[in-house]
Design a protein around this nucleic acid. Structure first.
Lengths: 212, 212
DNA sequence: CATAATATAGACGTTTAGGTTGAAATGAGG
DNA sequence: CCTCATTTCAACCTAAACGTCTATATTATG
């Protein structure tokens, strides 16, 4: 028997979800709450398995509630169920280690399946969310837009990102420290930054070099 | 009619796949190839929609073949179908912008569904792969292991990662430049680094601060 | 209460970083 | 052939960074 708690600020949706779920074999809706603080409280006082969580809620929003509950109760599988598909929210939530992220346009049948999967430890993402995740990962630098940097300058940059000083870089590449400085000046100009730290950070952002 | 090409170095598996797929409505297996170079060649000479790609192949491996085909033929949806679930391979492949990544333990029915989804632009990941992706994203720093850094030091670090100088940081926080330097010295000692660039890079690696 | 850590700040000194200028060899492209 | 970008190197200078030492007020911890 999978014990489920519903957290959503719309009574209508809560009621609808409850009716869908409570006639399913193996699923038992323990209770419903209408805000994030309620979700945190119920997690502290009752044992259950899966939490259906809306993100946009009053008092304590879903994101913050996820954070607290994840920290205090790792055994609860949080299945985010929301209309919100804005990129930044998605990544923030996924970083908390939730078990799944579904958009509210799911079929009831899919939702029920997903609850079972979350219970058995299988991760669940809506196709749209999977797409955003992959899109984030996909390296647009396949066409290697080097922002005007020469091969040598790129090589110097990799040493900067390793944390090497100009002297160390020069020794590693068998060139003088001054030459390293000159290359760096060109790099700064081309990347429109002022120092090596900014250059290293920008290089990582632009995926010119990888941060291993 | 979805035109499919199979790339796998095992004749037995190729034949099995072909037999499964060719009796499906709406799916037509154009041809099969046994190595990465063959996959690249067929993409250059024939038009088709979905490429079933094994990763572990002779001559040109699947990863390299994916890279070339993605660059030359964005319209082909690559569905990776492999036994290989090692972490580094997965991320390398996903960064290339493939349409899906399935492990070879899928049910034939699921494979057929996945081909249709890839054709309609929907991303497909095996649950195990989704799990690895989420696991990668999930921030283990929820228990805020700050590596001994105080709140103030962490605050200073965020300015370093923004590319701010000591003077700018001091002005922003209404403290003297010297105090910023003192904090930085503590930060260097605690992070076991030697300068601000290394500190910024290590902070990002340790997820002490985010790179926005 | 005493000790430790934190946050603040100054003095002093050394090292590194970065800008400016100039210069020379190489190779690619018009 | 000439030009331009690249790569190499140097001298000179300023500013920034970093270390060491000292010092004080606050707060937390045992």
């Amino acid at each position: 028997m999978i014990r489920v708690v519903i957290a959503d600020d719309h009574p209508l949706l809560r009621e609808g979800l409850r009716r869908i779920l409570e006639f399913e074999d193996g699923i038992q809706v323990i209770t419903e709450v209408g805000d994030g603080q309620g979700a945190i409280n119920i997690a502290r006082t009752q044992k259950f398995d899966v939490l259906l969580m809306d993100l946009n809620m009053p008092r304590v929003n879903g994101l913050e509630a996820c954070r607290v509950i994840r920290r205090e109760h790792q055994e609860i599988g949080i299945l985010v169920l929301t209309v919100d598909d804005s990129d930044d929210k998605i990544f923030q939530v996924l970083q908390l280690g939730v078990a799944g992220y579904l958009l509210k346009d799911v079929e009831p049948k899919t939702l029920v399946e997903s609850i079972h999967k979350v219970y058995s430890g299988e991760p669940i993402l809506s196709p749209a969310v999977t797409g955003k995740l992959l899109g984030q990962l996909a390296n647009p630098a396949l066409h290697k837009e080097n922002h005007g940097l020469s091969d040598r300058e790129l090589e110097i940059l990799t040493y900067v990102v390793k944390g090497a000083s100009n002297r160390e870089t020069g020794q590693a590449l068998f060139i003088s420290e001054k030459t390293v400085k000159n290359h760096l000046s060109s790099i700064f100009r081309k990347l429109e930054v002022e120092d090596r730290t900014q250059a290293a950070l920008k290089a990582i952002k632009l995926k010119l070099v990888s941060l291993d």
